[in-house]
């Protein structure tokens, strides 16, 4: 079991890190969340019941770890040096980048699981414990939101 986890880690660690960073709002927090999540998976390997794929099970742990990391960063704290949260309340930042805050937490998670990890709707649904239909609807709403924010930046 640990061998399978190691293989998954080595094959997809960059995708895990990218998604975790997006959810946590910080690259270092994201990297740390992935390490913690895999450590937890190693410790909890006996609890994997095989009802879904191992990758979906690990994704769920990674997403939860990233959520926890984001929650530990209180709103009043100064942003980390490499923070991805470059604006507030969905407003484009001064340098023209689209802020992650333009999306809700659920939208952010689905967008990055889809684009960064290349997971299909079913896999995302499995990782987030929601229905595939919710994944599709949320993804469409997130795309619209991001396009709107991008057009605002360009104009």
């Amino acid at each position: 079991m640990v061998d399978r986890l190691e293989a998954l880690y080595r094959a997809r660690v960059q995708e895990f890190r990218r998604v975790a960073a997006a959810i946590a709002g910080d690259r270092e927090l994201g990297c740390d969340a992935v390490q913690e999540a895999f450590a937890k998976a190693v410790r909890s390997a006996g609890r994997f019941d095989g009802s879904g794929t191992l990758e979906a099970w690990v994704w769920r742990i990674v997403v939860n770890a990233a959520r926890d990391a984001r929650r530990r960063t209180r709103p009043g704290d100064p942003s980390p040096s490499n923070s991805l949260l470059q604006g507030t309340s969905g407003e484009p930042s001064a340098d023209g980048q689209v802020p992650l805050d333009a999306l809700t937490e659920r939208q952010r998670e689905i967008v990055f699981l889809h684009y960064y990890a290349d997971l299909d709707y079913a896999a995302i649904a499995d990782a987030l414990a929601i229905s595939p239909g919710t994944v599709g609807a949320t993804l469409n709403a997130a795309r619209s939101r991001l396009r709107g924010a991008l057009e605002e930046v360009r104009t």
Partner: peptide
């Protein structure tokens, strides 16, 4: 667009 938000990681595993 997404690449600009979270650039790919290249740190070793």
């Amino acid at each position: 667009l997404l690449d600009t938000i979270v650039p790919p990681f290249d740190e070793p595993a």
